[in-house]
Design a protein around this nucleic acid. Sequence first.
DNA 1: TTAATTAGTGTTAGAGTGACACTAATAAGC
DNA 2: GCTTATTAGTGTCACTCTAACACTAATTAA
Lengths: 255, 255
Amino acid sequence: MYPQTPNQSVRGLNPHVSVDCVIFGFDFDRLNVLLIERDIHAPHKNNIPQRRFALPGNLVDDNENLDESARRVLRELTNLDDIYLEQFYAFGSPNRVQNEYDRHWLRTMRADPDARVITIAYFSLVKLSDYHPSPSSWARSAVWCPVEDIPDLAFDHNEIMDKAIVSLRNMLATRPIAFKLLPEKFTFGQLQKVYEVVMGTTFDKRNFRRKITNMKILIPLEEKQQGVPHKPARLYRFDSDKYREMLTEDLVFAV
Amino acid sequence: MYPQTPNQSVRGLNPHVSVDCVIFGFDFDRLNVLLIERDIHAPHKNNIPQRRFALPGNLVDDNENLDESARRVLRELTNLDDIYLEQFYAFGSPNRVQNEYDRHWLRTMRADPDARVITIAYFSLVKLSDYHPSPSSWARSAVWCPVEDIPDLAFDHNEIMDKAIVSLRNMLATRPIAFKLLPEKFTFGQLQKVYEVVMGTTFDKRNFRRKITNMKILIPLEEKQQGVPHKPARLYRFDSDKYREMLTEDLVFAV
DNA sequence: TTAATTAGTGTTAGAGTGACACTAATAAGC
DNA sequence: GCTTATTAGTGTCACTCTAACACTAATTAA
């Protein structure tokens, strides 16, 4: 049981290639990212933090392609499935493991703990409320952490995070992925909030409305918000045919 | 000498990770890509082509990061150096090696020929006339091939090529890299040609001129083309301060 | 009744985009 | 020296997009 080498023999894990997943979770308030806390088998040394967070990631199996691998690893560590993952960059500095504690942890986890590992990073953006990560495998916990409060992460995961945010924003600016984050019926205000939270800015309400309206992707409903302590907003749903069209277009959403 | 395993023991090549380089060469006429022809140690079987082209690529060394590796591999195979390489995607299907001939070739080249290899792909765009690739290492020849005439390539290299072109076009559309392809003094016609060849379209001359002029990146010279059998065009050079600014901006060049 | 909160709306000035056709300058060929 | 072939160079118009800007309306809570 310890050191724990999860099915390594059965699976044929490639000792040199891993995948890491940056899962952004949107909650109408801020942008979060999914971190896992390591199960600590290691004895605690002086000055070495006892809690250590990381992006969900692990070695690639020899029979699966990278996309499948990212999906599996995410599932194994967090019990999240059915998440569309987009590859965005490979990180392969020989010095990815600098921290002594990380090295120690690898020794408890990997058959070949000193192997130099290149990692292929993926990101996704999901509705936080739809996913309730629960830790498994070697994760002690799996938590949503606001992107402004990201702690020091394992390995080069802070660097991966930074690049992921850039990729996420590029994605949102060119593809209508915002709609995946909304309930079926939503208001203009909610839609705008998605863009604002992810992009990290604010937009002019009227200009935003006009821009979206011109895309002709929203269908207005004869229904309003209920129970809100202010003027209730009209509800909309989005036109899924139009949405599918736009997924393959070259559109640029620069509000 | 045969099978040839280039310094594998000295270097510590990672058997599972490679880099591949898609070097686009622009020659004012069309877009080319740099291919290497394999040195054929293998006996020729029936129906198996005797010439086999591939993108320059090789295994990553354990002491170098991915960018360095791409650079080294390109140098070793083609004697090209000082080329800025941009990483664009990682390819890692377990079935990257399907062709029998490719498998055979790997057996002649690699210490661990059946290892499953993930490759990190890079691209670059250079002025063809500036670079004279000469084959070395296991390359029999290194040739510029027009992108319209790319033959069947080794492994999944055709797939890599396709994705590289998309990345190249995105790059050209957002960064003023076209200027690297021109001589110090150039005409509007030449600049437009760069965009047309790389983007694979044509643009309206007047609109193009206006767009570029508005960027205020060109400095008109008191000089004209000479020796051309038509009205000689005015020469320009580009403002390198402005150029550096634009490299970091979010500009979109959608002519 | 009042306060707090968010929804909802239009205009204007400026910049950018796409479509479009003719004259000018040169070398080459005759 | 005339003609031809070739590329350079130029302006306008209609349209769309963009950024900036302020007030009224509807609801709940206190």
